[in-house]
Structures are given as C-alpha cells and as structure tokens.
Design a protein around this nucleic acid. Structure first.
Lengths: 156, 156
DNA sequence: GTGGATGCAAAAATTTTGCAATATA
DNA sequence: TATATTGCAAAATTTTTGCATCCAC
C-alpha cells in the first residue's frame, strides 16, 4: 500500500513541481501534526528542527503550493494569522471547526452536515457552491464537563 | 421612532464609553455602507471624507469597541485583511456569506439555516454554540446568468 | 477638572518579493 | 544543463502601542 506522503509526492509531480527536500520536510511536518492547526511560523519552526537551513519564505511558498494542489486548506480563525489544515484524503468537503472561547482549543467535525443547507443556497440564491468554511464559536466538551463537575462539587 | 444610530449611541453609553465625534462618524459610515464588507482601511478612508482629522488608529480602536459591543462582527475572507460587518438589529445569529470566485462579489444570506446542524453539533460534540461563521465559495447568480446567456449565444 | 479618547509616529507582526546561488529532473 | 527552487534580506501590509494632548462628561 502506498503511503500518504507518496501520494502527495506524486501529486506534486503530476503538476510538474519538483520534489525538493524542503517540500518533503514541510509535508512531513503537516502529516505529523494533522490534528493541529499550524500557522506558517509554526510549520517553519517544526521544519527547522529537521532541516535547519530552511527559510521562512520557502515555507510560505510551499504552503501556497499545497493550498493550490488542495492538499491543505488555508483557514483563518480571526487571530491575525493564516493556518494550514491538511485536507482529509478523499474528503469531498472541507471539515468544520469548533473553537472554544474558554480554552482556545480547536476541534474538528468531519461529518458534512451541510448538504441540506447547500441545496437551499444553490436553489434559492442560484449560487454554485465549490467550497465552504464553517466554524462554531462556543464552549467545548472538556470545559463543559469541568463546569458540570464544579457545579456538582459546589452543591455538596 | 428611535433611529438606528441613536440606539447604537445608547449602547455605547450603557457600556460607559464616551460618545466622540470620531465614533459617531465611524458608526455612520458603517450604516451608510451596510451592504459592503469594509476593511479598517476602507472605513478610515470613508470617515476621513467627513472628519479629515481622524487617525487610522482611532478607527481600529473604534471597530474593536463596536465588535465588543456586538454592533459589528469582525470577519475574515482570507485575503489578508479583517472586515467589519454590521450585525442586523435583533438578529439572533450572524448571517452567512457567499463569495464569488469569478467576480469577487460577496453576497449575504440572512436566513439562519443552521438550526438543525447546530442541534447535532451541540448534542453529539457536547459543544455549547455561542456564535458561528459560515461562508460559501462558488459562482454567484450574476456570473451564472451571464454564462447561461453566453451558452445560449454560442448555440445559435 | 479628570479620566478616557485621540492623533501621530514608531513598532510589531505577518506575508511577499527581488535576486544571486543552488539543485532537481 | 536548463530551469525551477531556495535562502536571505528587504519591502510591503496590516495592526498595535506609547505618549503627549485634548475633550466629553
């Protein structure tokens, strides 16, 4: 079975981009931190651990390239930096995000859930949907559970 | 009947913020350009027409204030600048956006549409939703109609 | 009168670009 | 070998901050 990184390499090749060690190192960092939502600076620092000679500009250029190839999605949570999120392989749609206002954690929702909404928008607004971004802001399950425990403790 | 701007002024007052001419001018610009999605720089240039002495920093500070008061919502379409969108009065939820990949226009969807999705997320992820951001990327009705016309013309 | 608000300029932070040197296919 | 890619530094952009002055309450 072919590895994820092999398939990404082939994607680069098919689009006639060269396979440089810098690009490979960047892709590896993204794969190894799939659950995170890294900024360009975050990626740069992690790549630097393995390939110390890499420049920040190369990381920006590689992330732009991977966005173009739809290997990653560029996303912005409103904190002033762009973040790069690996698109799940074969995923028809970009996944959604849950940002906790309390602890700052960002969780992912892989289910689509938007099919009905998209049907309505396409029909009623005559808008042909190609992609979407959906983010919820609120309180995550960890903070909710902690609060439940606190409440229970106070009742005693 | 009380005007929209009067109510916003009262909101400022209730939160014990002062009512300066700069703040009033900024709010007016936002009201007069309600359909647009202005960046801080955009707002600055428009306010400057009426109150030329205003500084960009004041605009940033005012927009931050209005965001805190939930008069506007800060939103980011991934083009490197934050934009500020007047929240519809009495709207329970932030409205959605349709960004056209062809002509760049941003249209708004005032219907909520997310009730069912939010129920699922709250239940299945134990996530208490406070706010949301939903943006669709695709082709707008104007570009779709133009294309239909072009197709019809080519068939002749 | 006083504390918050402003304007300006400087700084910070993020991202992009020019260019000579390098390395991939 | 030819051309895409890189690293570095400089530039461009966007946003924030310090501080003396000013003004709304």
């Amino acid at each position: 079975m072919e590895s994820r990184i092999e398939r990404i390499k082939k994607q680069l090749h098919s689009a006639s981009y060269k396979l440089t060690p810098q690009r490979e190192a960047t892709v590896r960092v993204l794969l190894e931190n799939e659950a995170d939502h890294l900024s360009a600076e975050d990626v740069y620092l992690l790549v630097k651990e393995k390939a110390p000679e890499i420049g920040l500009a190369t990381v920006y250029r590689t992330l732009e390239l991977l966005t173009e190839l739809k290997v990653v999605d560029k996303i912005n949570f409103g904190d002033g930096v762009s973040r790069y999120d690996l698109r799940k392989e074969g995923a028809a749609h970009f996944h959604h995000h849950l940002i906790c206002l309390e602890c700052g954690t960002v969780d992912e929702v892989q289910e689509d859930l938007l099919e009905d909404v998209e049907d309505i928008v396409e029909r009623d607004y005559n808008f042909k949907i190609k992609d979407h971004r959906l983010t919820f802001h609120g309180i995550c399950h960890r903070c909710n559970e902690r609060k439940d425990q606190d409440d229970a403790a106070n009742k005693k």
